[in-house]
Design a protein around this nucleic acid. Structure first.
Lengths: 218, 218
DNA sequence: TAGAATAGCGTACATGTGTACACCGAAACA
DNA sequence: TGTTTCGGTGTACACATGTACGCTATTCTA
C-alpha cells in the first residue's frame, strides 16, 4: 500500500489533529472548538472535515488517545531516570512537572474532559489514567514489596495528588513552581510512609496469626 | 425597603439561578447552557435576563458562590457529627459522600469550572476550595497538634483525595459507593499516619537541637 | 396624585453553526 | 487505456445564539 493518496490523507488528518491541539489553551477548551474553526486552521474547507472524522467527538477521542500515549512515554522517561539512581518520588514529580510545562494543553484536555459532558470522553480519560496508575502500582508492589491492595491504594492516591498538583501548576506563576513541587513531594512521602506503616502493621498481624495457629496445631 | 418590587425582582432572580442549576447534569455543563435556554426555563423572555445579570458569566459566578456556601454548610454538619464522637475521617468522608449524592450537579459545577476556560471561574472555585482546606487545616493543627506547614500539607492532600473520590462517585454505580468510601478512608489514614510520623521525626530533631544547644551553652 | 423608574415583553438582526448536495481532478485500478 | 474511487471544494440551508431597541404596565417617589 502506502500509495501517494493514502499518504496525503494521513497528512491532512494530522493537520486536523494539530490544528485542534494548537487551538487549545487555558482559555479555550476542546468542547468550545467548532468543526469549522478546526477545519479553517488546518487549511481545509469545512465539509472536508468529514473525510477524516465523522464528528468533533471522534477527533476529540483521538486527541485523548494521543495524550495517553504522551503520558506513557513520560512514564518510560521517568523510569529511565530512576534506574540511574535517585529518589523515586523526587524524580517522578520533576518529570511530571516538566511534562506539564511542555504539554500544558494536552494535560488540560485530560483534566477537562475527565469531568466533561461526554461519557465516552470521561471513560477514555479514566482509562488512560488507570493505565498510568496500574503501572505505578506494579512498580510499588515489587519495589516496596507491598500488598496488592495497599499498593493500589497508594498508587491511586499518589496519582491523584500529582494530577492535582499538575492542575495547580497550570495556573501557577513560574516562580512558585519549585515550591509547589516541593510540597507535592512531601505529600507523596506522607502517603508512602503511611502505606508502609500500615503494611508493617499487617505483617505483624499475619505473624501473630501464624504463631497462634502454630501454637494451636502443635 | 423591601418594596413589593424589589421582592419580585429577587424572586425571579432566584428563578434564573434555579433554572440554571436545574439544567445542569452529567451531560450538561454550565458553559454549554445558553442565555436563552436559562431564561426560557425560568419562564422569562430572553432579553429579560439582562435585568438580573449582565452575562451568563455573572450568573455562573453566583452559582459558584452558592456552591461554596453549600460546601461550608457541609463542614458545619460534619463538625457537629464529629463532636458527638466517632472517627473523624470516617464521618468526614461519609458526610462528603452524602453531599455528593444530594448535590451532584453543584459538585460537578465546581469540578468543571475549576479547570474551565474562564480565569474568573477558576479563581472563584479555587477560593472556595481554599476556605474548605483552611478550615480543615485549623482543625488538624489544634486537634493533632501539628506543625502549621505539616497541617496544611495534610489538609491539602486530604481535600484533594476527597474531591477526587467525589468525582469518581459521580460516575459510579450506587452499589460500588461503599467500597469507594472505604478506599478513600484508607487513603486518608495513610496521609494522616504519614504526616504524624513526619511530625514525630521533626519533634525529635528539635529535641536533639535543644539538647545540643543546652550542651553548648552550659 | 402626577411623574419617574423599571421589570418584563416582542421584534429584529447579524453572526456562527453543522451538514446535505453536487461537482471536480487526480490517483488507483481493470 | 478507460473507468472507478475518493479527497477536497463551494454553495446553500435551517437553526440557535447574543443582544439592541422600543413598548407597556406596574410600582415607587416626590
Amino acid at each position: 500500500m502506502s500509495g501517494i493518496r493514502a499518504l496525503q490523507k494521513e497528512k491532512t488528518r494530522r493537520q486536523l489533529i494539530d490544528a485542534a491541539l494548537g487551538q487549545l489553551s487555558s482559555e479555550r477548551s476542546f468542547s468550545s472548538l467548532s468543526l469549522r474553526e478546526v477545519a479553517k486552521e488546518a487549511g481545509l474547507a469545512p465539509t472536508s472535515f468529514y473525510r477524516h472524522f465523522s464528528d468533533m467527538d471522534e477527533l476529540g477521542l483521538t486527541l485523548v488517545d494521543e495524550a495517553g500515549l504522551t503520558l506513557r512515554q513520560l512514564m518510560r522517561q521517568a523510569r529511565q531516570r530512576i534506574e540511574k539512581g535517585g529518589s523515586v518520588i523526587q524524580i517522578s514529580v520533576r518529570t511530571f512537572m516538566e511534562f506539564i510545562e511542555n504539554n500544558g494543553n494536552i494535560f488540560r484536555l485530560l483534566l477537562r474532559e475527565r469531568s466533561g459532558t461526554s461519557p465516552a470522553f470521561r471513560a477514555a480519560v479514566n482509562r488512560e489514567i488507570r493505565y498510568f496508575t496500574l503501572e505505578l502500582c506494579d512498580y510499588l508492589q515489587q519495589a516496596n514489596k507491598l500488598d496488592a491492595e495497599l499498593a493500589y491504594l497508594q498508587a491511586n492516591a499518589a496519582v491523584t495528588i500529582v494530577f492535582s498538583a499538575g492542575s495547580d501548576a497550570l495556573d501557577c506563576d513560574k516562580k512558585d513552581l519549585a515550591a509547589l513541587a516541593q510540597r507535592t513531594i512531601k505529600q507523596l512521602r506522607f502517603i508512602a510512609r503511611g502505606a508502609f506503616e500500615f503494611s508493617v502493621r499487617n505483617d505483624n498481624l499475619i505473624e501473630l496469626r501464624k504463631t497462634k495457629v502454630k501454637g494451636v496445631t502443635k
